[in-house]
């Protein structure tokens, strides 16, 4: 039943993405942080290549490659269901969704996923530039590239489930979106968004391996840039899957509990 509805849901979502394309482009343009960090690190690496804590050497070109990959991955794993759920709970319009014979989370997931083709299209010029001008910063190991789509999907699942969990909080807490801010602040530090994890001291890298943030961004980027050997990559992708499963179970539980409290508007 739900499966049969999927193509239609995706089509509707895609139409929505096409209709609000200006808004989407503004969102993409707001992702300036990786580019700023790229300028910063290249200005440092131009003086002398930087040694990572893991012993690897980072030239100016490898920073360009790294942060362009960060930019691309960030676009591909985006999810914003927390805001939608929060909005619909507060406005009471979630009641309409609950009436439909389709799990609301599937609807949220498809509407987020349907933006993917357009987002990919916007990042295409960056990807082409990366491939043409900085191919040596990309991985030459085809096995890593096989893992790459898997890791992107895992990263998206984690982001989406965290969104659902935070959205489900809004059934009981007014200010659940503040939790999303907290997630972002931690994400900035621990996902390799500002600083490649290679520059963390060993103990901090160990900590980041046990937090979900690395698997949301750094892992796909590490696969793209080939900074992780294949065996280690397999382990990391497995760990990512575990995180996705765990967060999936958590968010589903929170959602079910929350919906049973939900009394539509004014409840």
């Amino acid at each position: 039943m739900s499966l049969r509805a999927l193509p239609t849901l995706l089509k509707v979502g895609f139409a929505e993405a096409a209709a609000y394309r200006t808004e989407m482009v503004v969102w993409v343009l707001s992702t300036t942080m990786p580019l700023v960090m790229m300028l910063l690190w290249t200005s440092i690496a131009d003086v002398a290549p930087v040694e990572g804590q893991g012993g690897a050497s980072w030239s100016s070109g490898s920073f360009v490659g790294y942060f362009l990959c960060v930019f691309i991955v960030r676009q591909l794993v985006a999810a914003w269901a927390a805001w939608e759920i929060n909005f619909e709970v507060r406005q009471g319009t979630l009641a309409m969704r609950l009436l439909k014979p389709l799990h609301p989370l599937i609807a949220f997931a498809t509407s987020n996923l349907a933006y993917l083709p357009l987002r990919a299209l916007v990042t295409l010029p960056v990807a082409v530039f990366l491939f043409v001008a900085h191919r040596d910063a990309l991985s030459g190991d085809w096995r890593l590239w096989l893992l790459f789509p898997l890791s992107i999907f895992g990263a998206w699942l984690i982001t989406f489930f965290v969104n659902v969990a935070v959205g489900a909080l809004s059934f009981s807490v007014d200010s659940s979106l503040r939790v999303m801010d907290l997630w972002f602040a931690l994400f900035f530090v621990f996902s390799g968004y500002l600083v490649p994890l290679d520059f963390f001291p060993p103990w901090l890298r160990e900590v980041s391996a046990w937090l979900p943030f690395r698997y949301v961004l750094s892992l796909p980027v590490e696969l793209m840039t080939g900074r992780v050997p294949f065996d280690a990559a397999l382990g990391l992708v497995a760990r990512q899957a575990l995180f996705a499963l765990g967060l999936g179970a958590l968010s589903l539980t929170m959602w079910t509990r929350g919906v049973s409290r939900f009394q539509a508007f004014g409840g």
């Binding site: 609000y20 200006t22 808004e23 503004v26 343009l29 707001s30 992702t31 300036t32």
Partner: peptide, 16 residues
């Protein structure tokens, strides 16, 4: 129309 995320753009450019 529907450019309410311009405020995000504003703050993210300032990040530089």
């Amino acid at each position: 129309v529907k450019v309410d995320n311009l405020s995000t753009l504003f703050t993210s450019i300032f990040d530089a």
